[in-house]
């Protein structure tokens, strides 16, 4: 436990809106080692972004962390004041968002915004900060950084803005980088550039990464461990190979089946997951996936399943994994292995 960079224990976050309490995150626990890349996958409303905002304590009114602990290097962030959090943000944990244009301030130059972050957290002169800013831009692959440092965000393209965001985030050498859908707003070829960059930087500066995305393809490339979220809970957690090749949760299986396979010659029908995600104002008493699950049993409606572990480091929240669960031929046969090749 001591070598874990981040330990999240039973995190519960709710939004107290006028329609009632929206239980966005309903008890999430996971941990992260130094230098590790963790992917959190889920659809809109699964609680993946709220989890990441909770880690940074950037929840906006009416969002509140109700319960749980966020231990960063052993210190609990939940009890920290706003002033104390300011030291953590940027210095220890940095974050990049989906839309770089709204995250950058349009009236300051890119350089100013990097310098601001450096001066806030490090004891350096303005000149040194500027040199550092240029170095950071070079690191993230901005051509001719000496002149580009004085550009405004609108003079950058979408991909370059995301690179600039990464430069700001990494300028104070954070131990953890949280990337919330960093490539969703970008084109495929630009997405490939940013993913290559993140892979490269991970090796160069050994920052831990939490990558939040809805795109299974993106996590398969970058992350060694994957968490699948649904209805505010972690449905499944395992190494990339475990989750993709031996999925244990029907939701994970469903996701894998619903994406088209590129190399298939014959047109095959996609297998969708019927129905829609649960309403988190009144979350179901049992498993959140119950209503859409093809392997559902009676107990699934009544009780939230505990985690069952399949292999070392591989756990899933599903009654089908209970030793006494009736055997279903199709369940446990699903595998994504070998269906894609290049």
């Amino acid at each position: 436990m001591a070598d874990k960079l981040l330990v999240v224990k039973d995190l519960k976050t709710s939004f107290f809106t006028h329609v009632g309490e929206v239980q966005a995150v309903r008890g999430v626990s996971f941990d992260l080692s130094a230098g590790e890349a963790l992917g959190i996958v889920g659809e809109s409303g699964s609680g993946k972004s709220v989890t990441s905002l909770s880690l940074m304590k950037l929840l906006q009114y009416p969002g509140v962390i109700k319960e749980g602990q966020i231990l960063f290097e052993g210190n609990d962030l939940v009890g920290k004041t706003e002033k104390e959090m300011r030291k953590v943000r940027g210095n220890d944990i940095a974050m990049i968002f989906q839309d770089p244009m709204t995250s950058l301030n349009p009236v300051y130059t890119i350089g100013n915004q990097i310098i601001e972050a450096i001066l806030e957290h490090q004891n350096v002169t303005k000149d040194q900060a500027r040199q550092k800013a240029i170095k950071m831009l070079e690191l993230v692959g901005i051509p001719s950084p000496e002149s580009r440092v004085d550009n405004y965000p609108h003079e950058f393209s979408g991909g370059m803005r995301q690179r600039a965001m990464i430069a700001i985030a990494l300028s104070c050498e954070p131990k953890l980088l949280i990337a919330d859908e960093p490539t969703t707003a970008l084109d495929v070829t630009i997405q490939a550039q940013i993913l290559e960059l993140m892979k490269d930087l991970k090796e160069k500066i050994n920052t831990s990464i939490i990558l939040i995305t809805h795109d299974l393809g993106v996590v398969a490339d970058l992350c060694s461990r994957i968490i699948v979220m649904y209805g505010g809970l972690i449905m499944e957690e395992g190494t990339a190979n475990q989750v993709f090749y031996e999925p244990k949760h029907p939701y994970t299986m469903g996701l894998l089946k619903s994406i088209p396979k590129l190399h298939k010659k014959e047109k095959e029908r996609l297998i969708p997951i019927d129905g829609t995600p649960p309403d988190l104002v009144k979350p179901p008493t049992g498993c959140p996936f119950y209503a859409r699950c093809e392997y559902a049993m009676r107990i699934c409606q009544e009780q939230i399943p505990p985690y069952f572990s399949a292999n070392a480091g591989h756990r899933a929240m599903c009654w089908r994994m209970h030793p006494e669960a009736p055997i279903n031929e199709n369940y446990s046969k699903v595998s994504n292995k070998g269906v894609n090749h290049v």
Partner: peptide
């Protein structure tokens, strides 16, 4: 280039 940029949801293949 466009085709090779598609992220493939399969760890072995994509690596």
């Amino acid at each position: 280039a466009l085709l090779s940029a598609i992220p493939i949801p399969d760890p072995d293949v994509t690596k």
